[in-house]
């Protein structure tokens, strides 16, 4: 991998005919190099900081673009969300936290609140990771289900609820109404579903005028987003040392195990290999926006940096660099 230069990669990828690179050495998508740049710049304490408004803007664009893309495809092909798929994916979101919690308690010897927080983060999903996997699949010309953005929405909330239940039990004076309202009206849910609805209503012709910003620039926006994510991940690294070996091991193993679960579910639901890759990646990804915010107020005694560090500094880089190519091969193997 050391011999691959960023420029070399971008040239190879740009001219790849769909699907031909699938079984070569996993070539790094050029956008990933922006993440590496951010990471290196952050570690080296370079004079590089994007204002938070830029992060908000870039992530808003990404969320809308992902939703719009799905909506346009749905308008083209029709088709809804099969009921078994809806149930299966919701259930996946609720159940993934359980093994995570058990491992954190049993092997990691974490307290109840910390273990539940970790479980919520790892059961929930990362839209950033999703953006990388759909970019990865697009580059390779691998098709996946147009309704995939709905899976993101379905997977985001249940795990957070499960994590809070693991920490609090059913009793306790928690303002569930307000909490659920905040979760379901969170930025990512609103923008993904909003984009999906607009794309679906407007259809391919209707969205032609906004195509340059949301579709043509998608990879460039993703690159900027990943640069910022690299800086954010680098800022977590010092904390990583404090939390010890378990967090690193968990951050590397949980995504692999969860990806297998997600891939098997995708296969059982009859998804395409591209769809299986997406679902596996979603199961493998860990939340770093919705879960930290909700857990911080609902489970105050949990150490917020423990879960966030694992998610941002270990699992996110692992998934986008190593994991996604691996999950794509897993999906291909399951389809064979």
């Amino acid at each position: 991998m050391a011999s691959v230069t960023p420029a070399g990669v971008s040239n190879t990828v740009a001219h790849l005919p769909g699907g031909s690179a699938r079984h070569d050495m996993p070539t790094l998508d050029p956008v990933i190099w922006f993440f590496v740049l951010g990471l290196v710049a952050g570690v080296a304490r370079a004079d590089l900081r994007l204002p938070s408004a830029i992060y908000d803007f870039v992530s808003t664009l990404l969320l809308l673009a992902i939703g719009l893309k799905g909506g346009v495809e749905l308008a083209r092909d029709g088709g809804g969300l099969p009921l078994p798929e809806l149930g299966g994916i919701l259930l996946l979101g609720f159940l993934l936290p359980l093994p995570a919690y058990a491992a954190a308690r049993g092997i990691g010897r974490l307290g109840r609140a910390d273990a539940a927080s970790l479980a919520a983060h790892y059961g929930s999903v990362s839209v950033g990771t999703y953006a990388v996997v759909i970019g990865y699949l697009a580059t390779r010309g691998i098709a996946f289900e147009a309704r995939a953005p709905v899976w993101v929405v379905l997977l985001e909330v249940p795990a957070i609820v499960a994590g809070i239940l693991l920490a609090r039990g059913l009793s306790g004076k928690l303002a569930w109404g307000r909490l659920l309202r905040e979760l379901f009206l969170g930025r990512s849910v609103v923008l993904l579903l909003g984009g999906l609805a607009i794309g679906w209503v407007a259809g391919p012709e209707g969205t032609a005028s906004i195509q340059p910003l949301f579709f043509d620039l998608f990879k460039g926006i993703l690159a900027l987003f990943l640069l910022e994510m690299g800086l954010i991940a680098a800022a977590q690294l010092p904390t990583l040392r404090r939390h010890g070996v378990f967090i690193v091991a968990f951050g590397l193993l949980a995504p692999v195990v969860f990806a297998v679960v997600g891939a098997l579910l995708g296969r059982a639901l009859g998804l395409s290999p591209g769809g299986v890759t997406v679902l596996a990646t979603l199961a493998a990804s860990a939340s770093y926006i919705a879960a930290p915010a909700a857990i911080r107020t609902a489970v105050p005694e949990a150490n917020p940096s423990l879960s966030l560090t694992a998610s941002l500094a270990v699992t996110f880089p692992f998934n986008i660099i190593v994991g996604i190519p691996l999950y794509e091969r897993l999906a291909a193997a399951l389809a064979a």
């Binding site: 900081r49 994007l50 204002p51 938070s52 992060y55 954010i232 800022a235 904390t239 770093y288 926006i289 930290p292 915010a293 911080r296 917020p304 940096s305 966030l308």
Partner: peptide, 20 residues
Amino acid sequence: SDARGKGGRGRRQSDWGPQG
């Protein structure tokens, strides 16, 4: 207003949501 600084619970940056 947004704020940045350092305290008993470490350095806090206002750059980024969850840690603002």
